[in-house]
């Protein structure tokens, strides 16, 4: 029995999953109709669907961030890339057909990722500092594209991406799932996952085994850039506008949080895409819960702050030592 418990509680996914379940349980008992799903016009509605729909941009960015963090890096420019790509897509939609606009946004995301990657891989600038540049400039560039205004989008096909329904579910969910599955397949069917985890865990040994870190750095930042572009398309189509200032504001923080809650360590190494999925869902559920319980939505930030510190403390070896010591002392005292 205890063996069984230990096995499961030691799994990296156990605690985030338990936290998510706990949160849902709280909702089940405190918010009537939280799990209630209705069908209107063949579309599913309800809090759960709402959470799943809203979490997608965060999830997509967090997936990219997971790869970046696995390689001991970080990308704080994702929010700015989101704003740039949203603005780029929206402005191109005014003159060009839909596929071009989407392709354009994705290419811009790729270029942003490439830029970060080059700074980090070849100029050897620390990831935080390198991505800080694009984070600062990005919103300015986005405003340059939108001309300082909030661009409204009048394109039904484009709006379908973020607002439409397919087979009863919001269309965005399919995109989120697709990104998740593609990255999962890439992890399982190429050596990307192995190499990332290897470099993140021991750079020197990996180098001696012939793995070139520069190439891996480029790849992960490009993926992160493209993920941010997808999120940019989703966000702008959902609200039918591109807001250079507020689109994706602080999403980098939520994304990092989702990754860390999901069990991937900031120090790199093993990464857990499933964990990131749970982490992102947890954050979105938390926001929705706070909103539904009737606590002022402003509380979200305070709660998030406390959750971040709690999660990091749990991961900190020093803290664990402290807990172990105190529980050990207790045992000694009891005996």
């Amino acid at each position: 029995m205890s063996q069984f418990m230990i096995r499961y509680t030691q799994s990296k996914l156990f605690w985030p999953f338990a936290a998510l379940v706990l949160l849902l349980l709280i909702n089940f008992f405190t918010i009537p109709g939280f799990f209630h799903i209705t069908i209107k016009n063949g579309h599913l509605f309800g809090s759960l669907i709402d959470i799943m729909n809203r979490v997608i941009p965060l999830l997509v960015i967090a997936i990219g961030m997971t790869l970046v963090i696995a390689k001991e890096g970080i990308d704080i420019s994702v929010g700015s890339i989101l704003a740039i790509t949203a603005a780029a897509a929206a402005s191109l939609l005014e003159v060009a057909p839909l596929p071009y606009a989407i392709l354009f946004a994705l290419v811009i995301g790729l270029i942003c990722g490439l830029w970060n990657g080059i700074l980090i891989a070849y100029l050897k600038i620390q990831p935080m500092i390198a991505t800080l540049i694009l984070m600062t400039v990005g919103r300015g560039i986005a405003q340059l594209i939108t001309g300082g205004q909030i661009l409204t989008i009048n394109n039904k096909a484009y709006e379908y991406i973020g607002k439409g329904f397919l087979l009863g579910f919001p269309f965005a969910i399919y995109i989120g799932l697709a990104v998740f599955c593609i990255v999962l397949i890439v992890k399982k069917k190429t050596a990307l996952g192995l190499f990332l985890e290897s470099i993140g865990s021991n750079k020197t040994s990996s180098h001696f085994a012939g793995i070139r870190p520069e190439k891996m750095i480029l790849i992960v930042y490009i993926i992160s850039g493209i993920c941010s572009a997808i999120a940019g398309i989703l966000v702008s189509s959902n609200v039918s506008s591109a807001d250079a200032n507020n689109a994706g504001l602080w999403i980098e923080l939520d994304a990092i949080l989702a990754v860390v809650i999901g069990g991937t360590s900031m120090r790199g190494g093993r990464f857990y895409l499933g964990g990131t999925l749970i982490g992102a869902l947890f954050i979105q559920t938390l926001s929705t819960t706070i909103y539904s319980i009737g606590i002022r939505p402003e509380m979200t930030m305070v709660v998030k702050a406390i959750v971040v510190i709690a999660v990091c403390l749990m991961q900190s070896g020093e803290f664990r030592k402290l807990i172990r010591q105190s529980s050990f002392k207790k045992k000694v005292n009891e005996a």
């Binding site: 190499f195 290897s198 865990s201 021991n202 990996s206 001696f208 085994a209 012939g210 793995i211």
Partner: peptide, 18 residues
Amino acid sequence: GIVGELTIRENMMLALQS
């Protein structure tokens, strides 16, 4: 030499995979 966090199998694969 070793990549501590990885398994025996993964450690064995690194050079061949690269």
